[in-house]
Design a protein around this nucleic acid. Sequence first.
DNA 1: CGTTGAACCTGTTTGC
DNA 2: TGCAAACAGGTTCAAC
Length: 276
Amino acid sequence: MPELPEVEIVVQHLKAHILGATIATLAIHRSDMVRTGHDLIPWLPQATVTQVHRIGKCVVMTCQRSQETRYLLSELGMTGLWFFKANLATSPQHIHCQMTLSGRKTRELHYWNPRRFGGLWLFELSGLEAFMQRRFGPDALTITQDAFCHLVQTTRGQLKAFFLNQQRLAGIGNIYANEILYRANVHPDAKGHQLRSTSRQRLHQTMQEVLREAIAAGGSSIRDFRAPNGSKGHFQEVHQVYQKDDQACLHGCATLIQRLQKERSSFFCSSCQKKR
DNA sequence: CGTTGAACCTGTTTGC
DNA sequence: TGCAAACAGGTTCAAC
């Protein structure tokens, strides 16, 4: 479910509500959701959350106790969310981790994830750095135009696949890949290295515009996505192509939006989106 | 090294 | 109505 804008919303809410809070208790209901660092679970109680930030589509909470620092990284997968109240989770049996907190108004945190894609990782600094290096390319929201254009130029495959590959560029998923390519007038099957320089630059500009607008709108709530307080995002209301197959292109041409492939489909306008 | 496609899981929607 | 198949925003891993 959550791509960069949704994870950013989750991080904003966590920052506002639990920064400076101390973890009082921690309960793991499904230990297989903890992918790495089981030995660090007993360390967490009495640690204070000193930082919350986003890496690609992951949420990282920095935890401090005495002079030691550890990191709780969570990946949300397709259906994962953090909630401030257990009753915000529509199926309580899929809450896999619960914390109680002290020192702030918000006293609970619940990790809910019905499909169980994603999970929790507990790291020391070296482990976190190795994980980041292995998994993530530069962040889509902050990458410079030059660095982005270089990535595109060195991509032999289709641009849609490039956007989904987190090792090349971190943060974009299927919704935003489709929306960005449409707004930039670039065909999803266009080969990266065949794109003209102006198209590469426009793609970078459009990508960051779309991401910023989506964050400002609270993200996209297609079916499950909710912020930790239960509120929905609104960016789905202005999606132009995602799941709009057979609807008229909004650029004013008479073409209908097409859908390519059954799963993780590309949605695009064959008149407006060019392969170069 | 870069790219592709199947596998992983549960819940909801679609179609017969 | 009931059941099965198709599909959903995610990553991983093997194979090319």
